[in-house]
Simulated assay, not measured.
Amino acid sequence: MSKTILYARVSTTDQTLDHQKTQAEAAGFTIDDVVSDHGVSGISTRLAEREEGHRLFDILRSGDVLVVRWVDRLGRNYQDVTDTIRHFMRQGVIVRTVINNMTFDGATTDPMQEAVRDALIAFMAATAQAQAEATKEAQKAGIEAAKGDATRYRGKKPSFDRQALETIQHMTAQGAGTTETANATGLTRQAVIRIRKDPAKAEAALARWGL
């Protein structure tokens, strides 16, 4: 009997695994099992090298559905993400994302459909890596800004956490609208607009509060 398995990964203490499961269920997925890695980087650690990520290669079977919040939960390295998704598709596993409701499977034999599917996988994997690099640069800018404000009042505590900031960045890259992004993060449209306008400032606010 086929199963629907959620793979969740968080890399920082302010993110939660439960949030990813809640998002998946809210999107209509019925999750049979959750496999999760905590405190693991998606940039430097390949999925097969993570303790729980490695389990996916052992437990997934043909007909199973692998659900992830977005492809960056699998990893933020272009080669690793594309190799991983293609490996699972060859096994007969269907890969689905919560954000944007993407579906990738190896059932199609039409060459044009395969080309479109593979191009989309490549684009999403490349976006995941590019956003990781952009976030790293924004964090540096935020840290420098926080250092400059070290003796000043920290200001109002941000209404968002790092997971919300990452979700906004992901959805923005995918062309999602402000209202859709606000609904996905639980923030107001105004907050989403402010963060999109100046992500470095948002990083600085998180840094000042140690978030």
Rank of each mutant, 00 (worst) to 15 (best):
A173W: 01
S159H: 06
G155S: 12
G175Q: 09
F123H: 13
E180I: 10
S159C: 01
G155W: 10
Q163D: 15
Q174C: 11
D149M: 15
T181E: 04
E166L: 07
T179Y: 09
N183P: 00
T127E: 12
Q169F: 02
L165Y: 08
R152S: 15
R154T: 13
T185V: 09
T179A: 15
T179C: 00
S159L: 14
A128D: 04
H170Q: 15
K136Y: 11
K147E: 13
S159V: 12
Q169I: 04
A126T: 12
E144A: 14
K147Y: 05
A146G: 08
K156L: 07
A146N: 07
A130L: 10
P158E: 06
I121N: 04
F160C: 03
A125E: 09
T179G: 00
A176N: 08
I168W: 03
T127D: 13
I143Q: 15
F123I: 02
Q139N: 10
E180F: 02
Q139L: 12
Q139F: 11
D161Y: 01
T181M: 06
E166T: 07
A145C: 03
T179V: 13
E137G: 05
G155E: 07
E180M: 08
A150P: 02
A122I: 00
A122G: 10
L120A: 04
H170V: 14
R152D: 14
G148V: 07
I121Y: 06
A132C: 07
K156W: 01
A184R: 05
A134W: 07
R152G: 04
F160A: 04
A122R: 13
H170K: 04
Q163V: 00
A141F: 02
T172Q: 13
A141E: 13
A126H: 07
G142Q: 05
H170D: 15
A122N: 11
E133S: 10
A150W: 09
A150R: 09
A145G: 14
A119Q: 14
Q129I: 06
G142M: 06
A130G: 08
A122K: 08
T172H: 07
G186N: 09
Q131A: 02
A134V: 03
R162S: 15
Q174L: 11
T181A: 04
A125W: 03
L165K: 03
E166A: 06
Q129D: 12
Q174Y: 11
I143W: 03
G186I: 07
T172P: 01
A119H: 02
A145R: 13
